[in-house]
Simulated assay, not measured.
Amino acid sequence: MNQAQDNTTLRAGLQAVPRALRNLHKALIDVETVYFGAVGSALEHLQLIANHPHFAWLKPMSVLMAALDEALDEPGPLSAEAAAGWRAAIETLVGPGTAAAGEFRSRYVILLHDAPEVAIAHGALRQLLGRLPQQAG
C-alpha cells in the first residue's frame, strides 16, 4: 500500500470515530437526564448539560469530541502516530487505557454496566478504535 492509500485508510478510519463518540455521548446524556429528572424545554436541557454540576463529568468527552472534529477538518496527511494518539486519548476516557484524571471513568463505568444503550454505543466505538493503530510501547 502506498503512502496516499495509507493516509486515506487512516483518515477514513478516524473519521468514523466522531459519529460513534457522539452516539455514546448522547446515550450518556440520555441516561443522566433520566437520573436527573424533568428538564423542561430542549433549550433548558441544553443549558443543564452545559452548566449544571450533575452533567459536568461529561465535559472531558465533549472537549475531546470538539478537538477531534477540529483536527479532522484540517487538510493534509494524517500520520499513523496521530491516529494512534487519538485512539489513546479516547481510551483514557472509555478504556481500556489508563484512566484520565477526574471522575469521568468511574461515572462512565457505572453507566456502562447500568444502561444497555451505553454498552451498545461503547461496543460500536471500541470496534472502530480497534481498527486504528496503537501507540508504540
Rank of each mutant, 00 (worst) to 15 (best):
A100H: 04
A100G: 10
A101P: 03
A101V: 07
A101G: 11
A101C: 00
A101N: 09
A101K: 13
A101D: 15
G102M: 03
G102T: 09
G102C: 10
G102R: 07
E103R: 05
E103W: 00
E103A: 11
E103N: 09
E103G: 06
E103S: 12
E103L: 08
F104E: 01
R105L: 02
R105S: 03
R105D: 01
R105V: 00
R105G: 01
R105F: 05
S106F: 00
S106L: 06
R107N: 14
R107D: 03
R107T: 08
R107E: 11
Y108L: 06
Y108G: 02
Y108D: 00
Y108N: 03
V109G: 00
V109R: 13
V109M: 10
V109K: 12
I110Q: 08
I110C: 03
L111N: 13
L111S: 09
L111H: 15
L111I: 00
L112Q: 12
L112Y: 07
L112W: 03
L112H: 04
H113F: 04
H113M: 11
H113D: 14
H113Q: 15
D114K: 13
D114P: 02
D114I: 01
D114W: 06
D114N: 14
A115N: 14
A115F: 08
A115M: 05
P116F: 12
P116S: 07
P116N: 13
E117I: 02
E117H: 13
E117T: 11
E117R: 10
E117M: 10
E117N: 14
V118D: 01
V118C: 08
V118Y: 01
V118G: 07
V118W: 01
V118R: 00
V118S: 04
A119K: 05
A119Q: 14
A119Y: 02
I120F: 10
I120Q: 13
I120H: 10
I120C: 02
I120S: 07
A121K: 01
A121Y: 04
A121L: 12
A121M: 12
A121Q: 05
A121R: 02
H122R: 10
H122F: 05
H122D: 13
H122V: 04
G123S: 15
G123N: 06
G123H: 05
G123I: 09
A124Y: 04
A124S: 08
A124M: 03
A124Q: 13
L125T: 08
R126L: 15
R126G: 02
R126M: 15
L128P: 02
L128M: 03
L128F: 04
L128S: 03
L129W: 09
L129H: 11
L129Y: 01
L129C: 07
L129A: 08
L129K: 11
L129M: 04
L129T: 05
G130V: 08
G130M: 05
R131V: 07
R131C: 06
R131P: 00
R131F: 03
R131K: 15
R131Q: 13
L132N: 01
L132I: 12
P133Q: 11
P133E: 08
P133C: 12
Q134P: 00
Q134M: 13
Q134S: 14
Q135H: 09
Q135I: 14
Q135R: 15
A136V: 06
A136I: 06
A136T: 11
